[in-house]
Design a binder for these strands. Structure first.
Length: 531
RNA sequence: GCGCCCGUAGCUCAGAUGGAUAGAGUACUGCCCUCCGAAGGCAGGAGUCGCACGUUCGAAUCGUGUCGGGCGCGCCA
């Protein structure tokens, strides 16, 4: 009665307790209501339990435990239903429909074409691609986009660096640009340029040199991404923002909206009106634009291309641009939500080699490339490694450890579980399809129950990972699922004499194999039948 | 100085909406293949969840402060 006069709605929360002794579901409402009702939590719980109707789905009457939790345990017949659902849905098991076909862009990697992709880009590539796969699995219409800066000072610098190497080769006294790129790959590009441009072996045609270098590096990056099984739908050139006049239009629009002012010969945007900590220069006193203007213009195109949702995956060293871009978008007053786009930042990776930190510097040419990693530890392990940690925690990547202990990489643990099931099925020799309608009532021990619970969690897990933009949750889940399969395998024999028991167990492990496969697919990691 | 992220076992890290004895891997110790692959399993020790205060029936989780680490803060990109 007290609840009926209360204007506040009361929401009953149903938890899934970590401890299996607490049942499949737990309700803590009695604890939360105790104060409002002025009653003891256990008394409230008892009243609730008494009022519940009996159900064939429940193993027994809900229990009151601890300070007043209500623990609910499913009957075995309810618990095993998930197996049939998995076998029926196969690769679609776990998918959701919350995206409802809406468009979302995931922008990631977006490396400038001034050098090979390094470990940081690898983390971004694995994270962004997994996010895209997660969103696709929730029914979003995902477009993967790579934005690259093919103009401006850094590209200029790249051209000059290659030119300097060309001149060295030609025996000319040439000063290497102070901020030039010193990596070996610059020398290689210079060599190739000289080969293919015999008439300009000294690189006098700086435009041609620059174009060649950008094309060469873009090509290398594409090969790296391909080796990583990452593909993009759109490569967006920063230069197109200028050639299409979008940068100018954006600036004009911001001026028109009254969010700018002139000072010291420069044009400023009042980003402080939108939460930035200081106003930002848009047009420098020399008439050129600062980089954040094309950034805003680029995000305007995302919105105007119909992406009402956009996710931008960046290295954490770019986090300073977030507030600015969002502020710029707000100042446009074109209806973009204040939190557009969603940002997912990945923290820096500290690379250790030989017990020492490897400083990654493009300009100095000290590098651990993505290609090195893929060659040394393999694509699957590299992808898994990069997404198994929360992206906003910094991680230490010990190259020696990754190489020497590559067999201990957690990805093999998960893949092995999959291969193990395949191996059992091969020994059985029966037709897997016939397992779909098998009687599952023989499944009763705790290993089977644990496995069933884990399988049933998969759809919600994927939904959570997508909602939280947290790919690492998939890795955590798969590790636990594989652990349960391995424990089960060691504790019980599957290919037993008892035909009914055997078929029930086989159906269960086939369902497990399917979920392992589906989870690995989201990560872009293979599910081998043999290892 | 300002902003963002992080601070959980020796090490690397999980702990979604606050819940019931804080988890995994690794390392270390000891067991388990006449048995579906031991790339596996089982058992053990190891943590005042950086610190303090606060909110709450209840805090690793929320708030404030503080200390420590990373990153970013230029009319650079």
């Amino acid at each position: 009665p007290a609840l009926r006069d209360d204007a506040d709605a009361f929401v009953i929360e149903v938890d899934k307790p970590k401890n299996p002794d607490h049942g499949h579901f737990a309700v803590n409402s009695a604890l939360q209501l105790a104060k409002r009702l002025g009653l003891k939590p256990r008394d409230i719980a008892a009243a609730i339990v008494d009022a519940l109707p009996a159900s064939a789905l429940l193993a027994r009457k809900p229990e009151i435990a601890g300070p007043g939790f209500i623990n609910i345990r499913l009957a075995s017949s309810a618990e095993t239903r998930v197996v049939a659902a998995i076998l029926a849905s196969a690769e679609d098991f776990g998918k959701g429909t919350s995206g409802a076909g809406r468009k979302v862009m995931v922008e990631f990697v977006s490396a400038n074409p001034t050098g090979p992709l390094h470990v940081g880009h690898g983390r971004g590539a694995a994270t962004g691609d997994t996010l895209a796969r997660l969103l696709e699995a929730q029914g979003w219409n995902v477009s993967r986009e790579f934005y690259y800066n093919d103009s401006g000072a850094q590209i200029n610098n790249l051209g000059l660096s290659v030119q300097a190497r060309l001149r060295e080769k030609a025996g000319l006294a040439a000063a290497f640009p102070e901020d030039g790129y010193r990596g070996k790959y610059i020398v290689e590009i210079a060599d190739r340029y000289a080969e293919e441009h015999a008439h300009d072996a000294r690189g006098d045609d700086i435009d041609a040199v620059r174009r060649f270098a950008v094309a060469a590096l873009r090509h290398e990056q594409d090969l790296d991404l391909k080796a990583f099984d990452v593909r993009f739908d759109v490569y967006f050139l920063e230069s197109s923002l200028y050639t299409d006049g979008l940068v100018d239009k954006t600036v004009e629009h911001l001026v028109k909206m009254g969010h700018t002012y002139e000072q010291d010969g420069a044009l400023w945007l009042k980003t402080t009106d939108y939460g930035d900590d200081k106003d930002r220069v848009m047009r420098k006193s020399d008439g050129t634009f600062t980089y954040f203007v094309p950034d805003v213009a680029y995000h305007v195109t995302k919105w105007q291309r119909g992406f009402t949702r956009a996710i931008t995956e960046l290295g954490a060293d770019h986090h300073g641009s977030l507030a600015r871009v969002r502020a710029g978008l707000q100042a446009m007053e074109i209806g973009v939500p204040p939190d557009y786009p969603d940002y997912v930042l990945h923290q820096m990776i500290t690379v250790m080699r030989g017990g020492e930190e490897v400083k990654i510097s493009k300009r100095a040419g000290s590098y651990v490339t993505l290609r090195d990693l893929i060659d040394e530890v393999g694509r699957d392990a590299t992808r898994y490694f990069f997404v198994m940690r929360k992206s906003d925690s910094q991680l230490t990547f010990d190259i020696d450890l990754a190489k020497s202990r590559s067999e201990d990489n957690p990805v093999y643990y998960v893949q092995y579980a999959h291969a193990r099931v395949c191996s059992v099925l091969a020994q059985w020799g029966g037709n897997v399809d016939t397992l779909a309608g098998v009687d599952l009532s023989p499944l009763a021990n705790r290993y089977e129950s644990d496995l069933l619970r884990a399988l049933a969690d998969f759809p919600e897990l994927l939904a959570t990972a997508a909602r939280e933009l947290s790919p690492h949750l998939v890795c955590v889940y798969l590790g636990e699922l594989a652990a349960r399969l391995h424990s089960y395998y060691n504790a019980e024999k599957f290919l037993v004499e008892d035909e009914k028991l055997k078929l029930a167990r086989l159906a269960l492990i086939v369902a497990t194999r399917q979920v392992l496969r589906n989870g690995l697919a989201v990560l872009g990691v293979s599910a081998p039948e043999k290892m």
